[in-house]
């Protein structure tokens, strides 16, 4: 058993990818909790898709791809905010427009530069954690440190703002700055996570561990800590599964964390589907309506 755990660690690439997976797991669970409580899960998806053109341009210009992705992510959130404040278009529609346009631009750019640069579109879409360098590890450590320190320092302000934005504004907190800061933290987190799971699956790391923890605890900081723990376990076990069964690593991590969510969904002491069977009747109104429609047809 012990041997089973140690064997992959003799490889340099496995050490690097485990470190990155654990860091990204913690980061995503903590920052993703804010997305979840603000009902902004879609924004996580929007930003992650929007970083594609930044990645492509950085590659073509041989600049740092983290910086390219971060800039593209921030520009997309600003555009989303501009569209929904300066027109009657609602925020979710604005997100849909911006992120699909950025994503399309990213795919176009990457396909164009693919021939000369030997980049693989699949690595952007699904991540390439086994290919992380020590430089990537350091970048991830720095980003994780910055984000976690900011969240610890601003915890009470961010909690007030995300719970009751109007109340926070009425108390004189700079809510627009807090909101923008939160967007930056989300963009940084997504950029750091791209190597692990890629653009498409980042959302899973952001919302699934936090949602799992939400079913088990009742306070925001508990949700972040438990979410981070679940996320770390998912990342590590996903990586081992991927090593021993030759599975793609990003999807393996995501599947394990979805498995944990399913367990919490079924067995959570307060909210579980099986521990609180009376709630499982939620489906019955639908059945009742179908039955009544059928009855109405039979007896005209």
């Amino acid at each position: 058993m012990f041997q089973l755990l140690l064997e992959p660690l003799q490889y340099d690439f496995m050490q690097r990818s485990l470190v990155v997976a654990v860091l990204v797991g913690i980061l995503c669970a903590v920052v993703g909790s804010y997305l979840m409580v603000q009902r902004l899960a879609l924004l996580g998806d929007a930003i992650s898709h929007s970083v594609m053109p930044g990645l492509a341009l950085a590659f073509a210009l041989e600049a740092n791809i983290f910086i390219g992705a971060f800039i593209a992510g921030v520009i997309s959130t600003l555009l989303i905010a501009l569209i929904h404040t300066r027109s009657p278009i609602k925020e979710d529609t604005a997100m849909g427009i911006v992120f699909s346009a950025f994503f399309a631009l990213g795919i176009t750019l990457i396909t164009t530069i693919q021939k000369d640069n030997k980049v693989d579109l699949n690595h952007f879409l699904f991540g390439n954690i086994l290919g992380v360098s020590w430089e990537d590890v350091i970048t991830t450590v720095v980003i994780a440190a910055i984000v976690v320190v900011i969240i610890v320092l601003l915890f009470k302000e961010l909690q007030f703002y995300t719970f009751d934005p109007l109340g926070a504004q009425a108390a004189g907190l700079p809510v627009n700055l807090l909101n923008f800061g939160l967007m930056i933290l989300i963009a940084l987190t997504i950029v750091a996570s791209l190597k692990v799971v890629g653009v498409i699956l980042v959302l899973a790391l952001l919302v699934t561990p936090g949602a799992t923890a939400y079913l088990l605890v009742k306070r925001l900081h508990q949700m972040m800590i438990l979410g981070a723990a679940i996320s770390v376990v998912s990342s590590v076990s996903g990586m081992y599964l991927s090593y021993y069964f030759n599975l793609p690593s990003g999807p393996a991590v995501v599947l394990v964390s979805a498995g944990f969510f399913t367990l919490a969904f079924l067995f959570s002491p307060q909210h579980g589907l099986l521990t609180h069977p009376q709630r499982s009747r939620a489906g019955s109104p639908l059945l009742r309506e179908i039955k009544s429609l059928l009855r109405a047809r039979r007896s005209p």
């Binding site: 409580v37 109007l166 109340g167």
Partner: peptide
Amino acid sequence: RVAYVPQRSQIDWTYPATVWDVVMMGRVR
């Protein structure tokens, strides 16, 4: 110098916070 109590319908009551967390928000500023 102002304390504001929003309409109850403006609040997401599923937010992961306890009574204590909410009252302490009054001390943030």
